[in-house]
Simulated scan of single mutants.
Amino acid sequence: MIFGILSAVIQMAAGAVFGLLAGGPIGLLVGAVVGLLVGAVFGWAVTSAGVYAPDARGIVLFVVDHTWSLLNTVVGAIYLVVHLVFGHSLDRPTSAASGRVCVVQGVSPRYATTIGTVCAGSNSGIQRHEDVHIFQARLLGPLYIPLVLANYALFTIAPIWLLYHDHTNAPINRFTRYFEIGVYPHVWNEAIAYRIQGTPPR
């Protein structure tokens, strides 16, 4: 329970600081309320599923996720709230002592998506791939999301990946495949994760 309470308090404080910087005293109040709401949901999930084990590893992961990687944790917490609003369920057995919050349903039946420490729609066959993204976020902290977004933007408007893409086995022959088979598996975070586990979509 202590991890969940601390998470909610830390996210409320982060919201308050961001709000203060963005909008003065009123921003502080709004940021604190939003941070508390999002943090309370995330804290509930952390406690309910026993996400962080009460050992040295669990403590280290919690500290990293709520300091250096706090931006990723907050964005992941917002992502979790959206899933729960749409009626998706927490996967407690998979989340327990894993250092990640797992949601049974994904954004799409075809893909698992991980943001921060929140992993939605995964299964045992691809969990290692998703865990790579959690590690990347913890390693790069506040740089992770901007670097991923920058790579998506770059590869969308300047598709240098076409130079080394496997055109024979994964042809780009319609608009949706440009993103699904082209941009997506070539951005740096996905390319690394696919090298560690999984075959890129074709």
Rank of each mutant, 00 (worst) to 15 (best):
L84S: 11
A112R: 05
R100S: 15
G121H: 12
C119K: 00
Q105T: 04
L84I: 13
G106C: 04
R92Y: 08
T117F: 12
T113K: 10
S98Q: 09
T94G: 13
R100Y: 11
A112D: 06
T94K: 14
P93W: 02
T113D: 03
C119P: 00
A112F: 08
R92M: 06
S89E: 15
V104S: 15
G87T: 09
H88W: 08
H88V: 00
H83N: 09
V85M: 06
L90S: 11
S95G: 03
R100M: 13
P109R: 11
V81A: 05
P93Y: 06
S98P: 08
G121L: 06
G99S: 10
I115W: 14
V82Y: 04
S89G: 15
R110D: 05
G116V: 00
G121D: 10
G87C: 13
V118Q: 03
T114H: 06
L84M: 14
R110M: 04
V101E: 00
S108N: 12
F86T: 01
A112W: 02
A120V: 11
L80P: 12
H88K: 14
A97I: 00
G106Q: 03
H83F: 07
S95M: 04
C102G: 12
V118I: 00
L90T: 07
A112C: 15
A120G: 13
C102W: 14
G99Q: 07
S95I: 05
V81G: 10
V82L: 07
L84K: 15
G99A: 08
S108T: 09
P93K: 03
L80C: 08
N123K: 06
T113R: 06
D91P: 08
A96T: 10
G106P: 07
V82G: 01
G99K: 02
V103C: 09
I115G: 12
V107L: 04
R92N: 09
A97R: 07
V107F: 04
R92I: 12
H83A: 06
H88M: 03
S108I: 02
V103W: 03
C119G: 00
A112S: 14
N123P: 10
C119T: 06
F86K: 05
A120Q: 07
L90Y: 10
C102H: 15
H88E: 07
D91Y: 03
P109E: 08
P109H: 09
G116Y: 03
S95W: 01
G99F: 07
V103F: 01
G99W: 07
A112P: 12
T94M: 13
Q105C: 02
V107A: 02
S89P: 15
G106L: 02
V82P: 04
G99M: 02
L80M: 01
L90H: 09
P109S: 10
A97N: 12
P109V: 02
N123Y: 13
H88L: 04
V104F: 13
V101Q: 01
V103A: 09
G121V: 10
C119F: 00
V85F: 02
L80Q: 08
N123C: 09
C119V: 02
T114V: 05
H88N: 12
S95D: 04
G121W: 12
D91W: 11
G121S: 11
I115A: 15
G116F: 01
R92S: 13
T114S: 11
